[in-house]
Amino acid sequence: MQKRRSIKSTGIPENILGYLMVTPALLCILLIAIFPIVRTFSLSLTDMKMQFPDAAKYIGLNNYVKLLKDERFWNATCNTLFFTIVSVAMELVIGFTMALVMNMPFKGRGLVRAAVLVPWAIPTTISATMWKFMYHDQFGVINDILLRMGLIDQYKPWLGSTLSALWCAIIADVWKTAPFMGLLLLAGLQTIPIELYESATVDGAGRIRRFFNITVPLIMPTMLVALIFRTLDAFRVFDLIFVMTGGGPGNSTETLSMYAYTMLFRNLDFGLGSAIAVLIFIFVFLISLIYIYLLNIQND
């Protein structure tokens, strides 16, 4: 640390330079993101309805109280949590398996890596439409495949049942994002020095012990970062649900973002809609706090 200070004299002071270098990025964030966010916060404290914008008045935390008592809000929260936990967990397991496979030397590894990037590059609105069509109860290829395999005895309306619709969305999401997770984890795996495994083998550690004693702890930091970004995305899932089910059947796939969208743009209830948006933000904030806490434990 002492050495750094002495170097300051060779240019403009290091801290000033630091601030200057982050300024453009900060400026963008402040200008384009913070202002609208602050406005959303302040709207959430009013009963603003777009139909009568002038009649809006400050109502304190009433919107939040209303939401906490709102069955639909909790239904949406449960759906969102279920979606997030299941899809991120599946992505982690599948992604990890993929990473382990791609980390092995075998012929055609490049092909696998390339294939894995395809789903991730397709716009969600398109992939969701694609999946919706594949799930169709009459023309859908998934019914055809399952019937040919003998897993079902007749075509099923996958998106039309409250039991399966959310799972359909989860599968489409896992398909799209597990490969990306796999690549991130692969990156982590490749940094683990082979010597560690070799010496452990010499010490007589078996495959499973090597996995849990070396691979898992060393990949933890990478995994947590990947999990943060995936969890944040999954928790705010919107496009996929909007295109595939629109929240149905019987509101069984309505997520928080979908609920916020409906309140804001369909019902024009900007007060309540903004309050949902703020609550999403708070939930997500809490989730990332947990991750960052875990990450810090790891780093120590």
Binding site: T40, R236, F238, L256, A260, L264, A277, F281, F285
Partner: peptide, 10 residues
């Protein structure tokens, strides 16, 4: 935290 805010809200 900016990246946490739902896009539809802004």
């Amino acid at each position: 935290s900016v990246s946490m805010f739902p896009g539809i809200a802004i």
